[in-house]
């Protein structure tokens, strides 16, 4: 008799349905909290949802592979979402063309800076080479960064966390930093946060100003392309 709830749990905990529901549910809760705090960057919905789910998994002694069986349906959509980044980029092609030179310069300089500075600082602090590979694409949007790490033999899960932290750090930093620097060009402000902090930075930029958000989205898409192309070469140069 008393076995029944336990048997039900054994069944549910092994099906994708439960963990898919938990993933979406945690996101809804985290998103509500983020909304209630007026999108305070410290209350990042992704980080909150991750902590929430990790606590549930820890509390129910569920392993990550079992969880991922359900969550993989959400995870799969990262690929199509990367492809869909072409849509805003295409829509904004006239803005891109009009500011082409400043964007290209900022893109190449910023992209190289993001990779080299992170790897060098971590290397100085004694982080081993294998982890440096997973750190290098930290400014790139998660699906692309994880793809890059995987192709170069790093650890995509670690990259996912470092990418998210970078997003949160950048979206907290950007507004006070840009104000302190006296930057008034919304295009430049948006572009830099999109490049340094991908989607999380872009979301932050859209809250501040729609033009900044547009440029942040463009920077995120372009930096994903440029980093995917440059990173294998740069890593070979600085890690040898």
């Amino acid at each position: 008799m008393s076995d029944q709830p336990f048997a039900l749990w054994v069944y549910l905990s092994q099906t994708p349905l439960l963990w898919l529901t938990v993933t979406l549910g945690a996101y809804v809760v985290a998103d509500r909290i983020s909304h209630a705090t007026k999108r305070n960057p410290l209350c990042n919905p992704v980080l909150m949802a991750v902590v929430l789910i990790a606590l549930v998994l820890w509390g129910t002694a569920t392993s990550y592979p079992v969880y991922f069986e359900g969550a993989k349906f959400v995870h799969f959509l990262l690929g199509p979402a990367t492809v869909a980044l072409a849509i805003p980029l295409y829509e904004n092609r006239r803005i891109v063309m009009r500011a082409l030179l400043p964007m290209l310069m900022a893109l190449v300089i910023g992209s190289v800076t993001a990779i080299v500075s992170a790897v060098w600082i971590a290397q100085l602090l004694g982080v081993p080479r294998q982890i440096l590979v997973s750190l290098a694409p930290k400014s790139v949007t998660a699906p692309v960064a994880m793809g890059i790490t995987e192709t170069l033999g790093g650890d995509p899960a670690l990259t996912a966390i470092l990418v998210m932290l970078t997003g949160v750090i950048g979206s907290i930093m950007v507004t006070p930093l840009m104000n302190a620097l006296g930057m008034t060009d919304w295009r430049a402000r948006g572009f830099s946060v999109g490049l340094a902090s991908h989607g999380i930075g872009t979301a932050r930029a859209f809250q501040v100003h729609s033009l900044a958000g547009t440029f942040a989205g463009i920077a995120m898409a372009l930096n994903a392309l440029v980093t995917a192309l440059l990173l294998p070469v740069i890593l070979r140069l600085i890690l040898s």
């Binding site: 996101y27 990550y64 996912a160």
Partner: peptide, 13 residues
């Protein structure tokens, strides 16, 4: 988009 990062993020466990 941020929902889609969560499954990979939980991998930090």
């Amino acid at each position: 988009l941020s929902l889609l990062f969560i499954p990979a993020g939980v991998g930090v466990m």
